[in-house]
């Protein structure tokens, strides 16, 4: 019957999209794995290992991720216009990747990794397979979560100027986000959390200041974070 024929047609369609989704999930799993290694290397920054050494270590993973995004792009090219259909399947991985890249970038340059820079690093091309802006913003919020811990460990290692620099960065970042009229969603919740990071960094700065520990010639030259 025509009913059966239509449903048979649907079954084929849905199976195709199911297998596409499976291939996407496989890429996302591979991303997860690269993220895990990259994150594990990045954690060394809390043990105050020099930034260049860390950069060296993670470079390989970035290449892996770039390649994976390339593969993702190719899969999506098979189903034009359906980026957002499957978006949920690699979304949280992308957000974590942005947070790691943004943290690295800040360590290197002291600046915020811009949206276009992130796309560039991942070999994404906004015209066909770009980086979703909300994913980028969530990633930046995640990055901010890492900063209080970084500040604490840097002070422990004797870098007393770090709180000031991080505080300035975070204050500006927070102000920039404040301008956004965020819907009441996940991103908004993540941003709301940023103020706790800010507060904690303020408190470390306060600790350092109240003990008069800032004056010293501390600017550790091996760090790129010159605000």
């Amino acid at each position: 019957s025509s009913v059966e024929k239509q449903f048979e047609h649907f079954r084929v369609q849905l199976e195709q999209s199911g297998s596409l989704r499976e291939r996407i999930r496989a890429v996302a799993t591979a991303m997860e794995s690269a993220i895990r290694i990259m994150h594990s290397n990045l954690l060394l920054v809390h043990q105050s290992r020099p930034v260049p050494e860390i950069l060296e270590k993670v470079k390989g993973q970035i290449a892996v991720l770039k390649e994976l995004f390339h593969r993702l792009g190719e899969i999506l090219r098979e189903c034009p216009g359906q980026y957002y259909r499957y978006h949920g399947d690699w979304r949280s991985e992308t957000q974590t990747i942005v947070s790691l890249l943004a943290f690295l970038h800040w360590l290197e340059t002291g600046n915020l990794l811009m949206h276009t820079e992130a796309e560039e690093k991942l070999g994404l091309d906004a015209s066909e397979f770009g980086l979703d802006i909300e994913d980028y913003l969530v990633g930046v919020c995640f990055m901010s979560n890492e900063l209080p811990r970084y500040v604490v460990n840097q002070v422990t290692a004797g870098d007393y100027d770090c709180p000031r620099k991080v505080l300035k960065f975070l204050t500006d970042l927070h102000a920039a986000f404040q301008m956004l009229n965020l819907r009441n969603d996940f991103l908004r919740k993540k941003f709301d959390g940023m103020k706790y990071d800010l507060r904690r960094v303020e408190e470390v700065y306060y600790d350092v200041k109240i003990r008069g520990l800032t004056a010293s010639g501390d600017s550790t030259g091996d760090q790129g974070t010159q605000a």
């Binding site: 109240i210 003990r211 008069g212 520990l213 004056a215 010293s216």
Partner: peptide, 8 residues
């Protein structure tokens, strides 16, 4: 030294 720094 720490205290001294502050006092200075």
């Amino acid at each position: 030294s720490l205290q001294e720094q502050r006092l200075a």
